[in-house]
Structure formats: C-alpha cells, structure tokens
Design a protein around this nucleic acid. Structure first.
Lengths: 118, 118
DNA sequence: GATTAATTTCAATGATCGTTGAATTTAGGG
DNA sequence: CCCTAAATTCAACGATCATTGAAATTAATC
C-alpha cells in the first residue's frame, strides 16, 4: 500500500479549506465524523452517500485540504478529522462549520451507529 | 436602476456559503469589509483586486450566498457585510472565517483607508 | 443634451468540478 | 492459490468556474 499524502497544516490555505467544504456530500462526511460515536470510520461506512469511486474522490479533497486524515489498515482505510491540528491552525472554525452544517435540513445524513471502524 | 436580489438568510445553504468563500479575491473582499473603517464600501474601492467586470462577478457570488449586501446610490453601489443576519443564522462562523482569512499571508489586501463610500 | 464616471452585461476562453462506470490494485481468508 | 471484499485508478462527460475584453447601462454634471 502506497503511503497517503497529508499536507502540512501550516501550508493549508483558507480558500482551499472552504473549497473542500463547498459540497453537500463532503459536508455530510464531516458532520458524520464529528457526530459519530467512532473517531475513525471505514470508507465503506459512507457507501450510501455516494459510489465508492466518488467517495474516494471526495475523501481526497477533504484530506488534501487538511480536514481529514486517512490511515491504512489491511484492505480498509480509516478516516478521521484532523481536529487538534486543524483547530490550532484555524481556531473555532471547524466548530462553527460543523454547527452550521448540522442544521442544514437537506444535507445527506448517515444513520447513527452506521459508522464503524471494524 | 433595477433592484438587487438578496436571498432570504434562512434559505442560504452552508455549502453555498463555503463555495462563495472558496476564492482568494472574495476572501480579500470579506476581510477588507470586516477590517475597514467604513461599514459600506464602493465597488471601486476594490479596483486593485481585479477588473471592474470581474469584481461585479465576485460581488454577485458573495451577495447570492448571503454574505454581503448591495445598496444602490447614484451611479455607485455600496457593499457591506450582512453581519447581524448572517451571525443569527450561522453563529460564530463569519468571525472564525475572517480570523482564518486574516492570517493568510498571500491573500490580496487593499491598503487601509482605501475603502470609501463617497 | 452631451460628457463622463461607475458599474453591469454579454459572449468567449480554458480550467476545474462532480459524477459515472469499467478496470485495477491490495490484502485477507478459504 | 483462488476468491472475495475494500478501495483506488482512469478516461470520459457535461456543468460550472474564474477571467478577459468590448459594448451597454445608468445617473450625476456641465
């Protein structure tokens, strides 16, 4: 498995972050990761948001914007928010983003307990 | 002068807001409006960020996303942030957005005192 | 009413975006 | 070693994006 690229948080530009958040599916992923019981989630947990191929595309966008992290484990990938690092770089931003997105009625949601790391 | 459209703040979607903020020039406009001495600014105040034609395009994006307001006065248009309304809808978001953008070293800046409404 | 300054409109461009589907990689279990 | 599950890669598509420049609008001023 080839290593996954994660940008230096200091090199992450605000405009790039907002570009990553400018999509309902990606916002849905962020909210699910923030609200889910598990800190890490398999890509497959999001299968009802989009096709696997499209999910890979969206995960890449989020990861390259510094929002998420990906960890390889066997044939799975575990996705999580880069909470602490991101908050240090952009204090308060992720919280208000999540709070804003959480109230959006027509964001794609994934049922509770469907996020798993196993 | 034909009236300018402003969306109902309740109808503004988070993803659309982030799309509006996902551009350096528009972020520069938002920061300038937030930090400038004048609450309202003429479009022409931003002439060194982009051509007039391109500025119109960017102002439209910001306005349709609920971020800014435009008021017609004579041959000019006065741009301002929709602060209170926006904050009521998305508490804390604009503040952390501006704070994040303010620290971006390669955002286009407009010199202090160059914003004017006259 | 002609002139001028501020801004918009419009058509055109190349670039990027979100999406699809089919083919490929990778790793674990029989 | 084969099979299956999980996810990526790749080429293609139409849609939207940021940008340009030339032409049109609009209103204050002479």
């Amino acid at each position: 498995m080839k290593p996954v690229f994660h940008p230096d948080m200091d090199a992450v530009e605000p405009a790039a972050v907002f570009a990553a958040l400018a999509d309902p599916i990606r916002l849905g992923i962020v909210v699910a990761l923030a609200d889910g019981a598990e800190v890490e989630a398999r890509c497959g947990s999001f299968n009802e948001l989009a096709s696997p191929s499209l999910l890979t595309y969206h995960f890449t966008k989020l990861r390259e914007a510094g929002v998420t992290r990906a960890r390889v484990e066997g044939t799975s990938r575990l996705i999580s928010l880069r909470r602490e690092e991101f908050d240090r770089r952009f204090p308060g931003l992720l919280d208000s983003v999540i709070e804003a997105a959480r109230r959006d009625p027509n964001l794609p949601r994934i049922p509770d307990g469907q996020l798993c790391r196993a």
